[in-house]
């Protein structure tokens, strides 16, 4: 699999590696997918990178590659910001080859990472018709998670037709941030758009939301989908090739 902009892959790894340390990458002719839960089975990440999004892609037979995201992250830190990246696995090999090429083709770096034997449990995630779908700038969402984490370890997300309200409370008090739905949309990327079938009010652990925001560099926008008593879906699109979707179980009143 070859990416002209290796930085896209680095952003994917940085978006995943705090939530899951290692994961099984499913490679097929259609592209690469990954699904993994965090150690407490409270959150899940689902990655899709379609083959047509790569500069070149070939997969002669389906492979499940157990990869340490922590190690992969360390190797990718050596990549130049404009490098292209090629990842390959030979048929009977127990390692993955990561090749980086500088833009002016004068520097070639090659790394080989040992593959891991992971028994990955797969969850079936049904297509859900969510009560509420919010689109907002990913930088804004990252900022809200950071600000709310000052006040408490849980964030209540309430939606109304006017907008969406994030609130948190804890020992030192409470705080809330309300975003009004954008009316005159000049720049789509900066808009707050709320499609609401019915109002929702759900509470989530802010540390997971903050971990999800590590994937924000992938996309200027983030999608938040909510339904009562249903895990939150937090989506960052990967331009022209797929998405990173995070799912987080809500916190329930005892």
């Amino acid at each position: 699999a070859r990416l002209l902009h290796g930085s896209i892959f680095a952003k994917v790894i940085e978006g995943l590696r705090e939530l899951v340390n290692e994961a099984t990458w499913e490679c097929s002719g259609n592209g690469i997918t990954l699904q993994a839960m965090d150690s407490s089975h409270v959150a899940l990440v689902s990655l899709v990178m379609r083959s047509e999004g790569f500069e070149s892609y070939r997969c002669d037979r389906n492979m499940s590659l157990g990869i340490s995201l922590v190690s992969m992250s360390k190797v990718l830190k050596t990549m130049g910001k404009d490098d292209s990246l090629t990842i390959r696995v030979n048929d009977d090999s127990d390692s993955i080859i990561i090749a980086m090429e500088s833009q002016n083709q004068d520097k070639f770096a090659d790394y080989e990472l040992r593959l891991m034997d992971l028994d990955s449990e797969h969850l079936g995630i049904p297509d859900t018709d969510y009560s509420c779908a919010i689109k907002m700038p990913s930088s804004e969402f990252s900022r809200i998670c950071r600000d709310m984490s000052i006040m408490g370890d849980s964030v209540l997300i309430c939606t109304t037709k006017e907008g969406v309200k994030f609130s948190a409370k804890g020992d030192l008090g409470q705080g809330s941030i309300r975003l009004v739905q954008t009316t005159n949309i000049e720049k789509e990327e900066e808009a707050v758009i709320i499609e609401m079938k019915e109002a929702v009010a759900l509470t989530f652990a802010v540390r997971y939301l903050s971990m999800f925001c590590k994937a924000a560099p992938l996309s200027p926008q983030v999608g938040l989908s909510l339904s009562e008593d249903t895990p939150l879906m937090c989506e960052f699109k990967i331009a022209e090739m797929g998405h990173v979707r995070f799912y987080l179980a809500p916190k329930i009143e005892d």
Binding site: V42, L123, A249, I252
Partner: peptide, 14 residues
């Protein structure tokens, strides 16, 4: 007090 649910009650193992 609120307790944190896991994903399993919502999504079944495929």
């Amino acid at each position: 007090k609120r307790h944190q649910n896991q994903l399993r009650p919502y999504y079944s193992s495929a």
